[in-house]
Nucleic acid binder design. Sequence first.
DNA 1: TCAAAAGTGTTCGATATACACCCATGC
DNA 2: GCATGGGTGTATATCGAACACTTTTGA
Lengths: 238, 238
Amino acid sequence: MDLAFMKTHVSVDCVIFGFDKDQLYVLLVRRNTLGDSGKSLKLPGSLIYQPEDANEAASRVLNELTGIRKMKLKQFKTFTSPMRTADNDDVNWLEYEYHNKIDRLITIAYLSLCKITRKLNVVSKYATVEWRPVNQLPKMPFDHNQIVEESLREIRNWVEYEPDTLFELLPAKFTITEFRLLYEAIYNRNYDARNFHKKMAQIKFILPLDEYQQNVKHRAARYYKFDRVTYNKQRIGM
Amino acid sequence: MDLAFMKTHVSVDCVIFGFDKDQLYVLLVRRNTLGDSGKSLKLPGSLIYQPEDANEAASRVLNELTGIRKMKLKQFKTFTSPMRTADNDDVNWLEYEYHNKIDRLITIAYLSLCKITRKLNVVSKYATVEWRPVNQLPKMPFDHNQIVEESLREIRNWVEYEPDTLFELLPAKFTITEFRLLYEAIYNRNYDARNFHKKMAQIKFILPLDEYQQNVKHRAARYYKFDRVTYNKQRIGM
DNA sequence: TCAAAAGTGTTCGATATACACCCATGC
DNA sequence: GCATGGGTGTATATCGAACACTTTTGA
């Protein structure tokens, strides 16, 4: 056993989910490639600055991308394998990007949710920002593919403890069918539309509006909205 | 914003739960005190060595204490606040213990379970090892009190996903009442003894033995055991 | 009038809860 | 024989699963 203690840089990486139609998407950034490893898309992230804690760093990354000051986010796992930086291309990019010699790097992974319709900033250090379907992700640098995989398990946990997180993924006004498709995407199973309706009707913080879809070539669906006031009241009682 | 990136040592800290009678206990170590902050008990932990990942470091800490090679363990949260090392006494102890200059330290917290009857090793760097009731913990260094608090939420999650973890806390042969008291301690609520019995009877991997309590001044309770073979078979089918 | 999706109610089985009495043992 | 905890069964409420038809709208 080498008796030296690990001293290392620490980064945060954010798995930001979006939802459209019937699918979950993950927000990836395209780094300015050096060499050509083919792995040009990656999770947005950053090294942690000296005076920050990890939550602040993740908030900063999210804010840069979305402009939202206080995004909901959740730390879910820290990845520490020395093999993370096994690929030289990955390390070269890091050192170029951060102007620091980097031998080993651990990362604290965060989960966050964002409306897919939101206009995003292209942060200077990246060429583009892209939503990619979670089922068809490209090969990414470091262990980013593994991080996304593990985040999927975590998202269910999150919505069970804090169901209001779900509404981060939906537009302010949504139909029950849209909501059901979101559930189906997250839990990767189907829900009976009738039973689902019944359940929604019982949930007090989901309010029916007097608005209906326009210009659809079938019966127009009713819109609903999430009511945070009622939600918070219920939570206090628990 | 200070543009220096954080470069830091990383430690693991282990919250090891034990169970006796009707209470959860946490395993603490007594450090050889320097100065007298009064905070001489702390969670067992260690800086991570250069070639290790965090799981290996946590396994090493657990192994040193219990002699068990492959203890079940679960990473649950990383604590990164710069304020962790705000107390000079804490930092002095660290630097004395590890012969390293330490300005900032983040820690990856692990959860583990151990039979409270197990004979423990006193690791050289500690004076003693002690089980303390989780409800009456002393003030501990760093953010160890907060870590334990957050671990309690995590333990429920763990036993729901992997119920076999529970049996790490019980002797090989246990009564249904002992098992119920464990549930009550973990979920901090009472369970009806009759309904609990009924539920246990349905669980196939809990096997009744032909052994009963001895020398009790009331009707002797039957012993049961956990059957891992049946447990694994069921799991595969899920 | 047809296609496409919205909306609605009932039945059934499984599961969780509430609750009361007899049993075995040591003293 | 009594105190102590062990063990059992029944009735009820609740929740989730299965399931079919009518409604609205645009083309």
